[in-house]
């Protein structure tokens, strides 16, 4: 017992004088007894099974007025030994599927609309080949069902490539992951392509943000993996390594896409969260076609890859 309690017992001697009298007056008339004397419209006490209260007869009523006079902890032998019956009625079984129209009921069924522009950046390169890159997503919906819109692309010298827009239905399937399905449209300065898309998105072990999506069309299949991780230098200064990989089963020379592991886009961004929704950053980014795509780029006489100094703003609403 805490010393506080011991002291309280002593204090009680002085404090209790009036209340002990009050309680004597109540002896035998518990609070419940008092309540019965009032007409409580709608609160019916008669249903209470008083027969179970026979235990109260055994109580030492005078002692009740002096709680401090003895230990308030129950003696070990007071606890009856019996084996309870275990049931699994699930007292709060799932609600019926019908909407019962309760005002409160819908309060946890809100829908939200958010968008995040993870990358909105200028990638500096000599020779006028600097480019503007964006990568973001927006969603609307509730806890389980959401509609996602993803968009990314890179604009260099007025030409957009790697332009990828996706419209996905997203369904929460586990604690940290969502299953997503929909369409992907490659819309940019190159020829347009349409794909079906199925993927997962979520938070992996050790708090890695990951997205893995498979695409299919009459041009074969493709895949994309994206991952990022936030390293908190301080609570506002955050270093984020990020990577995106694309795979294609078949080459698409008109879109300058090779087969196999087609390209990588990666960056190391250092952002400062001025406030949560607005964080300017500096970064080193690197993007490059890989394997067959690399050969295709070389044939065209392009510099295949370069690490570039980048600055941008991460924002969301």
């Amino acid at each position: 017992m805490k010393t506080g309690n011991m002291m309280s017992l002593v204090m009680l001697a002085c404090f209790l004088a009036p209340s002990v009298r009050a309680m004597d007056g109540m002896a035998g008339q518990s609070q419940m007894g008092q309540m019965e004397t009032h007409d409580m419209s709608g609160m019916d006490m008669s249903g209470m099974d008083m027969s179970d209260m026979s235990d109260m007869d055994d109580m030492d009523m005078p002692e009740m007025s002096h709680p401090a006079a003895r230990n308030v902890r129950p003696a070990p032998q007071q606890v009856r030994q019996k084996t309870p019956r275990i049931v699994h009625k699930a007292v709060d079984a799932p609600a019926p599927r019908v909407d019962i129209g309760h005002h409160m009921h819908g309060m946890d069924m809100g829908r939200w609309f958010h968008g995040v522009l993870d990358e909105f950046e200028g990638r500096y390169q000599t020779g006028g080949r600097s480019s503007l890159r964006w990568d973001g997503e927006a969603w609307y919906g509730g806890d389980y069902n959401r509609l996602w819109l993803k968009s990314e692309g890179t604009m260099t010298k007025g030409r957009v490539r790697d332009g990828d827009q996706e419209l996905l239905y997203s369904r929460a399937i586990s604690t940290y992951f969502n299953l997503q399905g929909g369409v992907r449209l490659d819309l940019d300065s190159g020829p347009a392509r349409a794909w079906g898309a199925v993927g997962v998105e979520g938070l992996a072990l050790y708090q890695f943000e990951v997205q893995a999506t498979g695409y299919f069309s009459d041009r074969g299949v493709a895949g994309r993996f994206e991952g990022s991780y936030d390293i908190l230098l301080t609570n506002r200064l955050i270093l984020q390594p990020q990577v995106e990989l694309n795979l294609y089963s078949r080459a698409d020379p008109r879109r300058q896409v090779g087969s196999g592991l087609a390209d990588i886009d990666t960056g190391l961004r250092l952002r400062y969260e001025v406030w949560r929704k607005m964080a300017p950053y500096v970064a080193v980014t690197y993007d490059s076609p890989l394997t067959q795509g690399r050969h295709m780029a070389r044939k065209r006489g392009e510099r295949a890859s370069e690490a570039r100094f980048t600055f941008g703003i991460r924002s969301w609403f």
């Binding site: 902890r73 129950p74 070990p76 007071q78 606890v79 009856r80 030994q81 019996k82 084996t83 309870p84 019956r85 275990i86 049931v87 699994h88 009625k89 699930a90 007292v91 709060d92 806890d143 389980y144 929460a172 399937i173 586990s174 604690t175 940290y176």
Partner: peptide
């Protein structure tokens, strides 16, 4: 031992909660 509870006649036990979308 300090907390002794008089056992009830019946215990309605849902068991451990599932690890799902709503519980981590």
């Amino acid at each position: 031992p300090v907390l002794q509870r008089t056992p009830a006649d019946e215990i309605d036990d849902p068991g451990p909660p599932p690890l799902n979308v709503e519980n981590q």
